[in-house]
């Protein structure tokens, strides 16, 4: 009965809308597909349909703020996870737009944004942010999963959650898992990460780890820098430095040279598991979505936001036991309580 009521509301709203781009709501379950069908019929073209939805029975009222979620590509798993936890946290009606869809041409997306006039946009990924900035630059924008956001020219009302855990947190985990690893080498470019390295060296001291940095100005410098770095360290920490990560071959070389000397490589993303990373400490995506939801709520409440970009606080840890055994590294077994995934 409840579903029928919701569907009637959706149908009524759909009939009122009539054209693409009017205010839309988001929904789940059979209600969604029925609503989608209704709107598909109204619009005539399925690829242009905006599904009306009532999120767990919430009804839209005139006072409800309009929240739009722009996903750079909803088929990317980590984007869709962030989107879902954002929605669960904010627990309000949302308009969901997938910029990765074939039909998401710029004029259509522009129309959707302008016609709906959202109060707040949650932008997942860099592409989403640039679109939101272009067409809703004066609105509150909450951004996550944006690579290199530090180098973006942010609008005054842009807030977000960074991609990587605070270095102090990552170092704490390094210490926790491998108490005997005291010297960690980092390849970095002064252009992008000079200040980061200085801060990391200081954070390392808090956990009794010496950070040894070796700068590279160009990708072709990596081999030489690595050759000098490896004999001095117990582990290599691969960070998201754009120069260091510019070429796949360089990444492969970092792993193969380290492997020859049985020096473990720590990384910031599980994507490096296939290269043979020993410990991967990434930000937990559901926690990022939750943080974005809290941030959005605070913005809607006009609360004071102290920090434009928060650090993610949830960790997701992958441990490569195969390499640990192969390299003969001493692992603190108690730390297994913090592992999300074990590679055997």
């Amino acid at each position: 009965m409840r579903k029928d009521m919701i569907t009637k509301k959706i149908e009524a709203l759909g009939a009122l809308m009539g054209i693409v781009g009017k205010r839309a709501l988001s929904a789940t379950g059979s209600v969604v597909s029925r609503a989608s069908n209704v709107l598909t019929r109204i619009n005539g073209v399925r690829s242009l349909c905006i599904a009306f939805a009532l999120h767990f029975g919430l009804s839209a009222t005139a006072a409800e703020p309009v929240i739009m979620i722009l996903s750079s590509d909803a088929s990317v798993n980590k984007y869709s996870i962030a989107q879902d936890t954002f929605k669960e946290t904010i627990n309000r009606v949302t308009i969901d737009v997938d910029l990765g869809a074939e039909s998401a041409t710029e004029p259509i997306v522009e129309n959707i944004i302008l016609d709906n006039n959202p109060d707040l946009l949650y932008c997942i990924g860099s592409k989403a942010y640039f679109v939101a900035k272009k067409y809703a630059g004066d609105k509150n924008l909450v951004v996550t999963s944006a690579i290199n956001w530090e180098r973006f020219k942010l609008t005054q009302k842009t807030f977000g959650v960074a991609n990587e855990l605070p270095t102090g947190m990552q170092l704490t985990f390094f210490r926790y898992f491998f108490p005997e690893i005291k010297k960690i080498g980092v390849l970095y470019s002064k252009k992008y990460n000079k200040e980061w390295l200085e801060q990391t060296i200081a954070d390392g001291k808090d956990v009794d780890i010496e950070i040894i940095g070796r700068s590279v100005a160009r990708t072709k410098d990596i081999k030489r820098a690595l050759t000098k770095l490896l004999p001095k360290v117990d582990a290599v920490w691969l960070t998201s430095d754009p120069i260091v990560l510019a070429e796949k071959d360089s990444i492969q070389m970092i792993f193969s040279k380290s492997d020859e000397l049985k020096i473990p490589v720590f990384a910031y993303d599980t994507a490096f598991a296939s290269y043979g990373a020993v410990l991967m400490i990434a930000a937990d995506i559901p926690t990022i979505g939750q943080q974005a939801g809290n941030l959005a709520q605070e913005l809607l409440d006009n609360s004071k936001i102290d920090e434009k970009f928060q650090s993610p606080v949830g960790s997701s840890i992958t441990l490569n036991m195969k390499k640990i055994v192969e390299y003969g590294i001493k692992l603190n077994k108690d730390a297994l309580d913090s592992v999300n995934e074990i590679i055997e």
């Binding site: 988001s26 969604v32 690829s47 979620i69 879902d84 969901d96 737009v97 997938d98």
Partner: peptide, 11 residues
Amino acid sequence: TDIISTAILRS
């Protein structure tokens, strides 16, 4: 195929 419905179905 879709801009919006894809996201919702996945969601």
